[in-house]
Simulated assay, not measured.
Amino acid sequence: MLRNIPPILSPDLLQSLRAMGHGDEIVIADANFPATALASRCHRLDGVSATDVLEAVLRVMPLDSFVPDPALVMEVVDDPDAVPPVVGEFQKITTATADNPVALERLERFAFYDRAKTAFAIVQTGETRLYGNIILKKGVIGT
């Protein structure tokens, strides 16, 4: 057992988070996301919401402070200015939990998929709310 590690983070997911280097990206994806088809490493957390996973990941992983957009969400198709409720929650969690709170930036759906293909890992959650997808860029831990 370990202390201060959110229990929803599986051993395999913790290993990926630890193995990631500065600038590597991880995707937290909803249940509809084509994670297995896109990922070189796919971690499944069925039954767990994307918001819970985001909060858990941000408790152990720093966001990159050297880029303007270390957290990206998927734009709503045909309404790029829309903010789905789950994205509003992502913003609240990022603001409250991240060591480097940022405004979430948006990517068009297919650009998001292309970016996800290059991610270090994708976490497939049980999130059923549409557009419950976010990409996080790992930062560094300062001394």
Rank of each mutant, 00 (worst) to 15 (best):
E75G: 01
P68V: 12
V102N: 03
E108D: 06
L72D: 09
F110E: 10
A98P: 10
P68D: 15
A121R: 02
A96Q: 15
T97Y: 10
R106N: 06
A111Y: 07
A121G: 08
F110L: 15
V86R: 01
L72F: 09
T95L: 13
L63D: 04
E89P: 00
V87T: 04
V87N: 05
T94Y: 10
D81H: 11
A121F: 00
K117S: 10
P80I: 07
D79I: 09
F112E: 01
E105N: 14
V73A: 13
P101I: 12
A119D: 04
V86N: 04
V102D: 05
P85N: 10
A116N: 06
Q91A: 07
I93V: 14
D114I: 00
V123D: 03
R115T: 15
A119S: 14
R106I: 02
S65C: 12
D69Q: 15
K92T: 13
F110R: 06
F112Y: 09
I122S: 04
A71H: 01
V102H: 08
A71F: 07
T118A: 15
T97L: 07
D78I: 09
A119R: 04
L72Y: 06
A119I: 04
D114A: 13
D64G: 08
V76Q: 12
R106L: 06
F120M: 06
F66G: 13
V102G: 10
L107V: 06
P84W: 05
P101F: 07
D78Q: 12
Y113T: 01
P70V: 03
V67R: 11
K92P: 00
V83A: 11
P68Y: 10
A98H: 09
E89D: 14
F120I: 07
K117T: 14
A119K: 03
I93L: 05
N100A: 09
P70W: 05
D79S: 14
L63A: 08
V87E: 05
V87L: 01
L72V: 12
M74N: 01
D79N: 13
V83P: 01
A103K: 15
A71V: 04
A116Q: 05
V73F: 01
A119L: 09
V83F: 02
Y113R: 05
Q91S: 09
V83I: 15
R109F: 05
K117A: 13
V83M: 11
V102L: 09
A119M: 08
E89Q: 15
K117I: 05
A98F: 11
F90V: 01
T94W: 08
P84Y: 03
D64N: 14
